[in-house]
Amino acid sequence: MLAGRLNVATGAFEIEELPVPDPRAGQVRIAVKAAGVCLSDVHLIEGMLNPAHLAGDSVTLGHEVSGVIDELGPGVTRWQPGQRVLLLAGELDAAGRVLTRGVDYDGGWAEYTLASQSTLVAIPDDLPFEQAAIIPDAVSTPWAAVTATAGTRPAQAVGVWGSGGLGAHAVQLLRMIGAAPIIAVDPLPAARDRALEFGADLALDPDDPDLAERVFAESGGLAVAFDFAGVPAVREQAVGCLAPQGKLVLVGLTDQPLTITGGTRFSYLQQQVLGHYGSLAVHIEELVALIRRRRLDFSRSVSGVLPLASAADAVDRLAHKKGNPIRLILRP
């Protein structure tokens, strides 16, 4: 089979031919139908992110995966061949460590991949594989950030910095739960337009010298500001737009230090900074339930579908924002 493999020691990414894997006890083999290309994959290839628990130097990338169950391993009773599923983006190992698919163990940029039976979620027959694949991470990460980490409530003023793959979905999800107003901030005009299409009430350029004044005029100060960009300047700007007791939720990843100017004011106003990473199985299940009830539609989120052999091209398009994609999908 073909697989997109990264050597984390050398940074080399190649499409390789590998044996089709056999499922072990408690595992199933998935015939992959769609796999998302995420900025985290770009960061892995560029070396900004490094696997914490990878055994060896090479890994098949891809943590956003959907497909059809192809073969059951010994002891699997919950599933049957032919079922349509999506795969959680990670799992806990026996030591309680969080392992990420496509980072700490082989992921779904391949014709076939293995998954523990506990990491599968059944999907409706009418949900396209391309849309199902992006639910783990591209949708579930902002959903968990909005509902669990931030505890966002209806009618709360919120800001979303970065309207890419995660931020655009955050706007859509915030709109669904009734946050208001929703203020999107992005340097790209096309991204600002997309945020408005997805439900933002106002979209601003971060270079606007009057940004903070416009945010306060629109909202009175933000109850929650979400950083999906992972840029230090974004975080500094977002803190300056918070209301008393407002929260800054850090979703975008960066290896740069976090600095808050005016620490006394920050403490006096009882503001908070909250880190966020990923999602849990319950968040995936909630989203699938909402899709079944026609509360959500991700047809606008698939910006392009490429063959697995063109994975390097997909990475380049995402890294350089060619066409301003939300999510690019690889199809084996």
Rank of each mutant, 00 (worst) to 15 (best):
F13P: 09
V282G: 09
I135C: 06
E71R: 15
P206C: 05
I329D: 00
G246R: 04
H169V: 02
S299Q: 06
P74K: 01
R101S: 04
L308P: 09
K33Q: 15
A110E: 09
T119H: 10
P189L: 13
L306I: 01
E213R: 13
Q131S: 11
I15A: 05
Q272A: 10
D316C: 12
E218V: 03
E285N: 12
A34C: 07
L258I: 06
G278F: 03
G75D: 13
L114C: 04
D255Q: 14
V215P: 11
P187H: 01
D106R: 12
D193W: 04
R317E: 04
V185I: 15
Q270V: 07
G262E: 09
D255M: 10
V42K: 11
L39V: 04
A150V: 02
R294E: 08
A212T: 15
P136K: 13
E236H: 13
G252N: 02
A145V: 00
T147H: 11
L120E: 05
A138V: 12
D104I: 10
A110W: 08
A238W: 06
R101D: 01
P187L: 01
D22H: 12
A110N: 08
S66Q: 07
F226V: 09
S118T: 14
V231T: 12
L328A: 06
G73L: 11
L49Y: 09
F216A: 05
L296A: 05
E213I: 09
L72F: 13
